[in-house]
Deep mutational scan, measured.
Amino acid sequence: MEVRTIKVFTTVDNINLHTQVVDMSMTYGQQFGPTYLDGADVTKIKPHNSHEGKTFYVLPNDDTLRVEAFEYYHTTDPSFLGRYMSALNHTKKWKYPQVNGLTSIKWADNNCYLATALLTLQQIELKFNPPALQDAYYRARAGEAANFCALILAYCNKTVGELGDVRETMSYLFQHANLDSCKRVLNVVCKTCGQQQTTLKGVEAVMYMGTLSYEQFKKGVQIPCTCGKQATKYLVQQESPFVMMSAPPAQYELKHGTFTCASEYTGNYQCGHYKHITSKETLYCIDGALLTKSSEYKGPITDVFYKENSYTTTIK
Rank of each mutant, 00 (worst) to 15 (best):
T5F: 12
I6T: 11
K7I: 11
V12W: 04
N14T: 12
I15D: 08
Q20D: 07
V22K: 10
Q31G: 09
D38N: 10
A40R: 10
P47R: 04
N49G: 10
S50M: 13
S50P: 12
E52H: 12
K54H: 12
T55H: 08
V58Q: 10
V58G: 08
V58I: 13
L59P: 08
R66K: 13
Y73K: 04
T75V: 11
T75D: 00
R83N: 11
M85P: 13
L88Y: 11
T91H: 02
P97K: 10
T103M: 03
S104R: 02
A108Y: 04
Q123I: 07
K127V: 10
F128Y: 07
Q134H: 10
Q134I: 07
Q134C: 08
A136Y: 08
E144R: 08
L151H: 01
I152K: 00
A154Q: 01
Y155W: 08
K158Y: 00
L163S: 12
D165A: 10
T169G: 05
M170Y: 06
L173Y: 00
N178G: 08
N178S: 09
K183V: 10
L186Y: 14
N187I: 06
V189R: 08
C190D: 01
C190V: 03
T192S: 14
C193S: 03
G194E: 00
Q195H: 11
Q196F: 13
T199L: 06
L200C: 11
G202N: 04
V203N: 04
A205V: 01
V206S: 02
M209S: 15
S213W: 02
Y214P: 08
F217Y: 05
K219A: 12
Q222F: 08
Q222I: 07
C227R: 00
G228Y: 01
A231T: 04
K233H: 12
Q238F: 03
S246K: 00
Y252R: 06
K255W: 00
K255N: 09
G257S: 06
T258M: 10
F259D: 02
N268I: 07
Y269L: 15
G272T: 01
G272S: 08
H273F: 02
H276W: 15
I277V: 08
I286L: 03
G288L: 02
A289H: 13
K293T: 14
K298V: 15
I301K: 00
D303A: 00
D303C: 08
D303P: 02
V304Y: 00
F305P: 02
Y306F: 09
E308R: 07
T312H: 10
